[in-house]
Design a binder for these strands. Structure first.
Lengths: 277, 277
DNA sequence: ACCAGTGTTCCGTTCAGTGGAACGCATGGG
DNA sequence: CCCATGCGTTCCACTGAACGGAACACTGGT
């Protein structure tokens, strides 16, 4: 059975109310894609990652396609509820059915089911916000989160994507997942906060260190004044396929790190075991 | 500006561990669709509503398309992370990026933002599970839920779709939303539990009653031994665009209904006002 | 009244999506 | 042990479906 196409690199989704990010109007959707119209349909959906509401002309411009094409794609997507039209101004936004299918993918995530009880225990025993994240290209995606305090507002909603090099989870995973590490190397190291990793040399050095100590820490690498601590979760082949992490304000977290590391390590091991490692 | 195509009727998504539902392999995706390949791509995604994991041949059979076509669609969807392949058996399942986009749609839902603080208040003052749902064709989709006790397991995950005629939310909405009421009339009244509405006559009679008293109740219409109570949320044009509801075991809920009705009614009014009604 | 913008519709060209057949690889029963 | 049967994948010639450009109806601002 030959290898299927790998997902291409995607830009982390940024909310308007979060840090904004340069868009990539002309994507390199040449590699590993075979159905052009389906590809443009997905490109159209991707447009809404950057802006909540877009018009036909907006999208056509952004994707470099004819207005009629964009319109055809949007009505097709709309007929299935993947996008919906604002009756006031005629613009389009992401639809409910996308949410429906997304929740289905979420509810069926086996990793998440294995991790949830352990995460609850960690949340209780540490008092910090606990995250579960998985690698996707050069980024990590947060799959589950148990919130304490109101660090939820800072992190944004779950399902959010962050570059691997500015999260402890990303470092924990990349340290034991060459594909994730390489993907980030290729994607570069754009800074996000005062202490974000900025070079490939730093990246590989940090990964070495993570391998040595077994966990990853980040202070103000993604959000100013926030600290997180992550431990990788392994599959059968000893590759990191996820990370469990705790997150909180630096001044609250720093004194507790020594206490939390063994708890988190034990938690990650339990999850790995549940997955058959 | 002419009317865009309306979403066609979709079958409620049923989990394997919930009540199963007859599938519709040959869908009537003739009406209101223009891009065939995009249409089949969405059909492919829809296949995963019924089953968590499917192979290329499965999908080809189910959709009545060539295996090569199904494969092409799946690899295209896979290259964008909308589906992913189980490396063990080569089968496909829904992908993370679907979850990502779905969460984005969720996070941007204005209705939800308006409703959340009110829902929290209702949850606190009643002690029951609180739901927010919106109409979609002949069904309602649960958009947000604040869980008390463990009624969460019974209801399944948010984002789930239930036929309008067997939920209090559906009745509350349909009573003040002709389009939703008609869509359910056309779709019929399949029974789900002992007290599910079974005829068009009952349906219209119930809707009349709901209009009179201002709220809708259901006992064992969708889940045996469960009761829910719903009040519609209106938009500017006095059309119901959502419902807020409380849910719980019948023996716990029944004695409290009189107490909860005014609380829920006030909550719905607050949400409607926030939306500019 | 104009103009610039929108979303929508129509139409002829051509290119891209189609199905069928063949491939290589697993699995399992005779 | 090998053959049959299933899988996911690849290749290819044909044709119909997706494309862009132009015209449409409509809106809001000047």
């Amino acid at each position: 059975m030959a290898m299927a196409a790998q997902p291409e690199h995607r830009q982390p989704i940024e909310e308007p109310w979060c840090v904004t990010t340069p868009k990539r109007p002309t994507d390199d959707h040449a590699a590993g894609e075979w159905l052009k119209s389906v590809g443009t349909a997905l490109d159209v959906l991707e447009c809404f990652a950057a802006d909540t509401e877009l018009g036909v002309s907006d999208i056509a411009r952004r994707l470099g396609i004819a207005k009629s094409t964009a319109h055809r794609v949007l009505t097709t997507l709309g007929s299935r509820g993947m996008v919906e039209q604002n009756p006031d101004n005629g613009q389009y936004r992401l639809g409910i059915h996308l949410y429906e299918l997304g929740q289905l993918a979420h509810a069926r995530n086996g990793l998440r089911h294995a991790a949830l009880p352990v995460m609850r225990e960690v949340c209780r025993s540490t008092g910090f916000t606990v995250n579960l994240s998985v690698p996707d290209g050069p980024d990590v995606v947060f799959v589950e989160r148990l919130v304490t305090q109101d660090s939820g507002r800072l992190l944004g909603h779950t399902g959010r994507r962050l570059p691997a090099h500015c999260t402890s989870s990303g470092k924990a995973i990349a340290a034991h997942n060459p594909k994730a590490a390489d993907a980030r190397l290729k994607a570069g190291f754009p800074p996000r906060a005062s202490h974000t990793i900025r070079s490939a040399a730093d990246w590989t050095a940090i990964l070495d260190h993570v391998r040595k100590v077994g966990h990853a820490v980040s202070h103000s690498e993604s959000f100013e004044g926030a600290t997180s601590l992550a431990v990788p979760v392994f599959d059968r082949s000893h590759t990191a396929i996820a990370a469990i992490s705790v997150f909180g304000p630096t001044d609250l977290m720093r004194p507790d790190i020594e206490r939390v590391v063994p708890l988190l390590t034990a938690a990650a091991r339990r999850i790995s075991k549940a997955l058959g490692a």
